[in-house]
């Protein structure tokens, strides 16, 4: 379970203005909201890449802010994250990118086991036989799928996806969401996406951020039927409304 209490963060101006949020264990949580609402910043706090000015973050009962950088390094093994820009290492091949977390975090695994796991992940994301390709030679959708394969290869209990389908055509986008749903397993997942039509087909719960605050937190069905004018306008893509 991920529990966030009173989280505040400002750069030049406040970005997070007192976030309270609970993501139950095993939940696929969709975080939505207009641009510059603070979604990506919130995700970076959840994985300990940023420290808040105020507030608390508990992950599976552990207070992230009480941890030293060294303890955090170890704790981050619990997370798999697919970044908005994919963040694939350009100097490594596709296979090496996917194997990277295993080689670094699971030194007890043999090379054969690592290769088998990489092959399995590549098949799972429908990119079999692409081990030797370099990331710059891939299409946008292929890069996304490699990012998902890398995020899930170590089978972490918490998965974070930041705009997993950004810039993809509708078919590729739906394929990515279906893949994420399929690959979820028992993991707790937080997913940020602007592609609400597809996001809401896979989420269990939804939170909406606006101006650094959570203005809605509920089930997907509640989000779709919400009377909150901001949520209604955003979820249904209406041009008329307060946004």
């Amino acid at each position: 379970m991920i529990a966030i209490q009173g989280l505040q963060k400002a750069f030049r101006e406040p970005v997070l203005r007192g976030i309270d949020l609970t993501v139950p264990k095993g939940c696929l949580y969709g975080l939505i909201g207009p641009g510059a609402a603070g979604k990506s910043v919130l995700l970076k706090h959840v994985v300990g890449l940023m420290r808040p000015d105020k507030g608390k973050i508990f992950v599976d009962g552990h207070d992230l802010l009480q941890m030293s950088e060294l303890e955090l390094q170890g704790f981050r093994k619990r997370f798999g994250i697919a970044f908005q820009n994919n963040a694939l290492f350009d100097h490594l091949s596709v296979g090496e990118n996917i194997a990277f977390p295993l080689r670094r975090l699971h030194k007890d695994m043999t090379e054969q086991e690592i290769q088998d796991r990489v092959d399995e992940r590549l098949r799972a994301v429908a990119l079999p036989g692409m081990q030797d390709r370099s990331p710059p030679s891939l299409s946008g959708g292929q890069k996304r799928r490699v990012g998902v394969a890398r995020a899930t290869v170590a089978r972490p209990p918490i998965l974070i996806y930041d705009e997993p389908a950004a810039g993809l055509d509708p078919v590729s986008s739906q394929k990515i969401f279906d893949l994420l749903k399929k690959e979820k397993g028992d993991a707790t997942v937080i997913m940020v996406s602007s592609d609400l039509d597809r996001l809401l087909t896979v989420t269990d719960r939804v939170g909406m951020m606006l101006d650094g605050k959570i203005i809605f937190d509920g089930t997907t069905e509640q989000a779709q039927n919400s009377n909150n004018e901001y949520v209604r306008q955003f979820v249904h893509g209406l041009t008329e409304g307060p946004l």
Binding site: K44, V47, L49, G74, R76, G80, F83, N85, A87
Partner: peptide, 10 residues
């Protein structure tokens, strides 16, 4: 975000 990816990978 490759540097962030490294940090996430501990």
């Amino acid at each position: 975000e490759q540097i962030d990816a490294l940090r996430i990978l501990a």
